[in-house]
Every structure is written in C-alpha cells, then in structure tokens.
Design a protein around this nucleic acid. Sequence first.
DNA 1: CTGGATCCAAAACGATACTG
DNA 2: CAGTATCGTTTTGGATCCAG
Lengths: 130, 130
Amino acid sequence: MSQRHTDVTVQAIEEACPLVEVLDHVSGKWSIGIIVAAAHGPIRFTELERAVSGISRRMLTLTLRRLERDGLLHRTVYPTVPPKVEYTLTDMARELHATLSALTDWAERHRSAIAAARKDYDADAAVNTA
Amino acid sequence: MSQRHTDVTVQAIEEACPLVEVLDHVSGKWSIGIIVAAAHGPIRFTELERAVSGISRRMLTLTLRRLERDGLLHRTVYPTVPPKVEYTLTDMARELHATLSALTDWAERHRSAIAAARKDYDADAAVNTA
DNA sequence: CTGGATCCAAAACGATACTG
DNA sequence: CAGTATCGTTTTGGATCCAG
C-alpha cells in the first residue's frame, strides 16, 4: 500500500480486463435486477416485468436475451396457449448471484456514507460557485 | 430454491434496489478500471490516463469527479508548478475493491464457459435463420 | 402471454483544441 | 500537468404498435 508507481500500471490494466468483461455482460441497469429476481426460482416474463420495477418491455426482452446468450439464464418455453415462458438461473449465474450479495452488503453498509459524501461535495460546489 | 412465486417478488425488488444504486455509481465503462488502477497507492492524473487503457481525457475527468463526489476517491492538489494532483481510494472504496475481486475471480472461473455459451447461442441463431 | 419492430429522445462517449 | 469547452457520434432506453 502507498508505494510509488513505476511500471506496475501495466499490471493494473491486465488485472482490470476480465472484470470489465463481466460488467459488460452484467451491466446495463437491469441485468442485476433480473438476476436477483430470478434467484429464488423459475420466474415468468410478466412476473419479471413486475418484479424489476421500472423496466420496459423492450429492455426486459433485450436484457433477457443477453443473459441467455451469456449462459446466465435458461429459457423454457411451454407451447401452450396462451404461451408461457419461464426463466431460470444457470449454476454459473447462481454463483454470480452469491458473489453479488457481497456487493449488496457493501452497498448497504455504505449507503448513507455515500449520500453524505454527495451532500458535502454539492455543498462545496455551491460555495465555490457563489 | 425452486419454490413458486406469490408475492415474494416484492421482496426481490427491495433486495435489488441498493445494488442498482451501487452499480449506477460504479458503472460506466471506466469507474472500475480507475478503482483498480488506484488500488495500490496514490496515482496522478496522467498516470491514470496511461493505466486505464483507451480512456479519453474527458471521460477520465468526468469519472474521477463522480467517484470523488460519491466519496470513493480523495483528490489532493499540490499547488506547485506544474500542477500535481493525486487520487487515492477512500477506505470505503478499498472495501469495494476487495469485494470486486470476488467478481474478478468469478469472471475468470467462468470466462470460457461464457464464451462457449455465446458460441452455442449464435450457432442456434444461425440454424433458425437458415 | 410473450415478445419482435420501429421511431425517437436522452445519455454516454470520443476527439481535440484551448487554458491556468 | 491537469484539466475545461465544444462538437459530433454512438449507445441506450422509453413509447407504441403489431403478431404468434
């Protein structure tokens, strides 16, 4: 910790790359919400639409396709009428969900700290503008 | 696991919200890269520009401001000439960085699985289009 | 019910010239 | 060195209508 930089920077970017990949797949406001919503069992399209508050039909579809494509979701179509489709997390995604809980914990531990930091920052900005 | 949905969906969204907040602050192609780059000690603007490969001056500045605003980065200005500015992770951000490593691990464990899933998905798509 | 297709607004991003 | 300002491009997302 707190040692000087030389060419360790190169190591830094290599360390970051896989993570950037993950977040590219998992990012987009909605992926996480969907994973969490699907975490405790098979869930249908309309249920997801209600569970992930604020999502539009379009974004739901797009995100579902991306998650399916990345092997995080499994899609089961029941050829009934009306149609019924269930989405289930893959094992891979279930591991991911467990990992994400660590992030949730972090978020909850520091939620108020972040809010406070913002408030301070904005206050400073107001002073410097006045 | 694999129980039916009733009104547990409500719980799902509440569980997701804080996490969505985090990712809103930490998201954007560059935040993570910057956090990783700053993780092993104070780092200067130009060093960051080189460490986070592909980032533009503009995005670097914008992302730095946001991270600072959210209390993840501390900015130290040395009023010398030429100017010198150092960015340091806050304690909060260091915790976050540790948490992110879990994600990195997950990504590396499943990198090839994701690639394979994609390949299959694209193959299917090709068949269904033909 | 599940979702594809289209159109449009907004946000994120990139390049680059300029400044204290 | 460490940014800011401006412009153009790309990506993202919402609204809506249509279809199996």
